[in-house]
Design a protein around this nucleic acid. Sequence first.
DNA 1: CGCAATGTTCGAAA
DNA 2: TTTTCGAACATTGC
Length: 281
Amino acid sequence: MPELPEVETVRKGLERLVVGKTIDAVTVLWPRIIELPEVPLFQAFLSGQEIIGVQRRGKFLILKLTDFDLVSHLRMEGKYEYFPSAQTAIQDKHTHVIFQMQDGSQLQYRDVRKFGRMALVPKNQSSKYKGIQQLGPEPLSHDFDKIAFQEALKKKTMAIKPLLLNQKIVVGLGNIYVDESLWLASIHPERLASSLTERETSLLYESIIAVLGQAVEAGGTTIRTYANALGEAGTFQVSLQVYGQTGQPCARCQTPIQKIKVAQRGTHFCPTCQKNKEVRR
DNA sequence: CGCAATGTTCGAAA
DNA sequence: TTTTCGAACATTGC
């Protein structure tokens, strides 16, 4: 459930389903999911906490509690499942953390690959959390400044795709939306950031906002994941132009979409629209 | 069997 | 210091 639009969709789902509820008890079935503090303390601190609100920063979810901030990152396949009643709750082998609410409902954290992480930090201190502290601006907020974005790219000698994936220049892009944004801006994923023209960085800035904005409106992209209680409603997969479209004709020029490896990630692009002006490797 | 999969982090090497 | 590369985490499905 990973990139910004999917996480935002989960945030809305959690806001609707668990805000106002008070946690009664927490069960942890895979301790490594819990980064901070140690599991027994994590459980003790959470007991009796009311969920006041649910925020998002980049791909991190932040549950605002009475006395703490609960930071949650879904990584590759983490998801939340809500059950109105513990009696009818279904626990499967991928359920790793269970939040039992005082009203009898239950929130489960499931994660096939167990890559997701949770950390309980002091109230209103989530911005100091190590994973969040170093994040760039939110692409759909006014913090995302075009000039600052262009200036940041000028200074970087890295290929543009891995640079956009590292969450420092701007947050929220992952493998799907970075490919989509670069296609929309007609930029080759291996172009060196510093080699982009002002016109290109401007177009890329607009493309990132357009792609993520539309994906949020669509409730995110749902691929190779089963429908679950939160954040499954995504329909952006029908709007994908390059991701998973290998061999399909480019919507702009009909050239078959190609798939290559960039920074160890599968990368989809149009070899005609997105030419690499560099002579790399 | 081998590989790739919506992500991040850490250590080593350049 | 910056960047790059590979591995690690862990499981599933093609």
